[in-house]
Design a binder for these strands. Structure first.
Length: 416
RNA sequence: GUGGUCAUAGCUCAAUAGGUAGAGCACCAGGUUGUGAUCCUGGCGGUUGGGGGUUCAAGUCCCCUUGGCCACCCCA
């Protein structure tokens, strides 16, 4: 057993898996860049206050924060999510040109018990837009996420949609829920939840609570005219773009800052405990809560791990490793391989080589394992003649040939 | 955080009623002194997650601990 292993809930991501990560990020960057979004990179560590503002009734903040005091006595924390950091950055730098449309990718940290698709350090990709209240923006945001999934090849993704109404609507609804649930037959855990955040009771998966939740008042009964109109506009916009969705009145997302539009993408193949691939919503009060000007905002974050799991389950987005062009086999000491790989790489061809002056057989095995398209072989004869052997590695790619060493680059380029 | 379950070579797994750990894959080396992917032979490789206990004897029983997985919780 090794002396050290990754901490609980943490893990290494090694090749070839890392290639899939890069690919996923590249697809995401393509989608959002094409929509005018710029990348932001914010610190992993923030003043803990940045995160405590996102909700006193949120486990992410109250129980799972990696908070500590640094050597200067500052109370800081690893970020549990990125929306708060982006809003803090907005409040700090006050970009003048609105809307401010940004995207990001990176790790987040939550100290909860890990299981499949749920790690203490987990990556998200996401976008945030600040400064625009338009329902068309809600539609655009959702459409971007949908396009991302589509580009990956995922088909079993369900968009679940709801609106929490304006803050006053939400407050009125919460009050109504409190009254209703006070007399309802709830499980012990849900009664605890009720005291902290009545909305969250709707999320309970316990059978005990099913009847009570079924009969609970619906948020839609509390929408103001504006909220109802906004929600209707969002739905109409999605239909116009041919994006399927399901309105789920009981959808309440974890973070407390959401207002009006909220949405979640659920994978069809994952177990319910991890089926939330990603989600987001409108958070019109968050920038203000962080000391900035009153600014509407909306965004989403998508879990990279879970998205990759969903890709596995659907059998899409499989092998993304780029095959090598050339593997150089040098059985005359290794110096020739050093020169040849340098030349090949400079010419834009990918090239690897064998080391330790191993036998030709051993080096050919390496060439085979590397999945290179060609082996370039240099032995004593070739060295003396100023030639190289170019051997195609695929089964039906023809015979190897000996060519002048000076022709190697052009020869390979002709054959690719 | 609570509960359940599991933990044996790098990987996937075996090991009858407790008796001093095996296989496949992978890796390495050979198979007529230059050539891989098939095949054959051989080799390397484990103080059975860690610690303690019961026993003449424990991978196999008991306790503790660490970690994975699953459910709850929460969320991406």
């Amino acid at each position: 057993m090794p002396a050290f292993q990754t901490s609980p809930g943490m893990r290494d991501i090694l090749p070839p898996e890392t290639a899939r990560w890069r690919r996923l990020n590249a697809v995401f960057a393509d989608v959002v860049s094409a929509a005018g979004y710029g990348q932001v990179i914010t610190p992993l560590i923030e003043d803990v206050g940045v995160f405590t503002r996102i909700g006193e009734a949120t486990d992410v903040v109250t129980k799972e924060l990696y908070a500590f005091e640094d050597r200067g006595g500052r109370h800081v924390s690893l970020r549990p999510e990125l929306t708060a950091s982006v809003c803090r950055a907005f409040a700090q730098h006050r970009p003048a040109a609105l809307p401010w449309k940004v995207w990001y990718t990176g790790p987040n940290f939550r100290q909860e018990k890990a299981q499949r698709g749920r790690y203490r350090q987990f990556d998200q990709v996401g976008v945030e837009v600040l400064g625009v209240d338009d329902a068309h923006l809600d539609v655009e945001i959702i459409a971007l996420a949908a396009e991302f999934y589509q580009r990956l090849g995922l088909t079993q993704v369900t968009l679940v949609l709801n609106s929490l109404g304006e803050p006053e609507d939400r407050a009125a609804y919460v009050a109504a829920l409190e009254t209703y649930f006070a007399d309802a037959d709830l499980s012990e855990q849900s009664q605890t939840t009720l005291a902290k955040n009545p909305l969250r009771v709707l999320d309970s998966k316990r059978e005990h609570d099913a009847v009570a939740i079924e009969g609970a008042p619906q948020i839609s009964e509390f929408y103001s005219d504006d909220a109802a109109a906004h929600f209707a506009a969002v739905q109409a916009g999605l239909k116009r773009l041919g994006i399927d969705f399901v309105v789920e009145p009981k959808l309440v997302r974890g973070l407390d800052y959401y207002r009006r539009t909220i949405f979640e993408f659920q994978g069809g193949t994952l177990d319910s405990a991890q089926n939330a691939l990603g989600g987001g919503g409108r958070y019109d009060g968050l920038v203000e809560a962080l000391g900035g000007p009153a600014t509407p905002g909306i965004g989403f974050a998508l879990g990279v791990d879970r998205t990759l799991l969903a890709c596995d389950d659907e059998g899409v987005f499989g092998d993304v490793t780029r095959p090598l062009d050339v593997f150089v086999v040098d059985v005359v000491g290794g110096q020739e391989a050093a020169v040849l790989t340098a030349e090949l790489r400079a010419a834009g061809l990918s090239a690897d080589r064998g080391y330790d002056n191993r036998s030709m057989k051993a080096q050919m095995k390496l060439a085979n394992r590397s999945e290179a398209r060609f082996a370039v072989i240099v032995g004593a004869d070739e060295l003396a003649d100023g030639t190289v052997v170019v051997r195609p590695m695929a089964r039906d790619a023809g015979d190897q040939q000996t060519i002048p060493r000076t022709d190697l680059i052009s020869h390979l380029k002709d054959r690719s």
